[in-house]
């Protein structure tokens, strides 16, 4: 270690450029894992079921929705069994809402560390993405018995799932990077965002299909990038599901927004320690 080139830290009032900031994130990548590990350990510390809770939550949601919408209201999803339709929708939506909610709170949650030790603060929401991935993987386990039960096969297109999840993450982080950058001063966001998440699920095809929605609010569906994500997940999983054309335009909007979000956050994070 002594033979390394001398490490120098330069402190000025200047902000990092986007490139410098991205390099910093890379340098601190181990911390992303460390924080994710901490969250997972803490979440299931002193519980009997541990990770089992991750499966119980979507399972109950699945049971309730399948019963009311599928069985009582007889909603159908083309030729797909309704429970599979709901579960595939929940996969994408829960992943998204976990990152948005936890990501925004992550800065406040780690206030004590932020005030004492330096690290790029984007590490905090990024670690939440990892936690969300673990939970997603566990929820996915529910899928297998359900597929067998309904005698459905899975599509080879599942190999595209990582790309869809990456897109899903970018949408979620785009929201987090702006809300977290503002929430430390405008605390109202801590109330507004859960509210939006609560309503968001109703303009995203998680429970119902497009034709259930009235014509007048059809545009919300197209404006919502999460519709594209949820539909694309179904396209990846089910052999006969048609490709969602909304995917590409959404991509064009989200990618620049995401990078602008990183830049915006890197500006804001310097003030975190002075204000939280």
């Amino acid at each position: 270690m002594k033979n390394q080139a001398p490490l120098v830290t330069i402190i000025t009032s200047e902000q990092d450029t986007l490139k410098e900031y991205v390099l910093k994130i890379w340098k601190y990548r181990a911390l992303i894992f460390a924080f994710a590990q901490r969250d997972l350990k803490v979440k299931y510390a002193q519980t009997w079921l541990g990770l089992g809770w991750t499966i119980i939550q979507p399972l109950t949601a699945l049971a309730v929705f399948s019963f009311f919408f599928g069985y009582v209201l007889h909603w159908r999803a083309d030729d797909l069994p309704y429970s599979l339709y709901v579960l595939s929708g929940l996969l994408g939506w829960n992943f998204f809402s976990y990152i948005v909610f936890q990501g925004m709170n992550s800065v406040q949650e780690s206030a004590h560390v932020i005030k004492k030790i330096y690290f790029p603060k984007i590490v905090l929401p990024l670690s939440k993405v990892l936690v969300a991935l673990v939970e997603l993987a566990i929820t996915f386990l529910l899928f297998i018995p359900l597929l067998i039960w309904h005698e459905q096969s899975i599509s080879w297109k599942i190999i595209f799932i990582p790309a869809v999840l990456l897109f899903n993450t970018m949408i979620a982080l785009s929201i987090v990077l702006f809300t977290a950058s503002l929430a430390y001063r405008i605390r109202d966001l801590f109330h507004v965002v859960p509210f939006l998440l609560y309503f968001g699920i109703w303009v995203t095809p998680v429970f119902f299909t497009k034709d259930v929605l009235p014509e007048q609010i059809n545009f919300l569906w197209h404006l919502n990038p999460m519709s594209a994500v949820v539909e694309s997940i179904r396209w990846c999983l089910f052999p006969n599901w048609s490709f969602s054309s909304g995917f590409l335009p959404a991509l064009l909007v989200i990618i620049p927004l995401f990078f602008f979000g990183i830049y915006f956050y890197s500006k804001a994070e310097n003030k975190f320690s002075d204000f939280i």
Partner: peptide, 11 residues
Amino acid sequence: GVTKPTSGRAE
């Protein structure tokens, strides 16, 4: 590095 200076420099 926890907070930024308003001006000046440190190495």
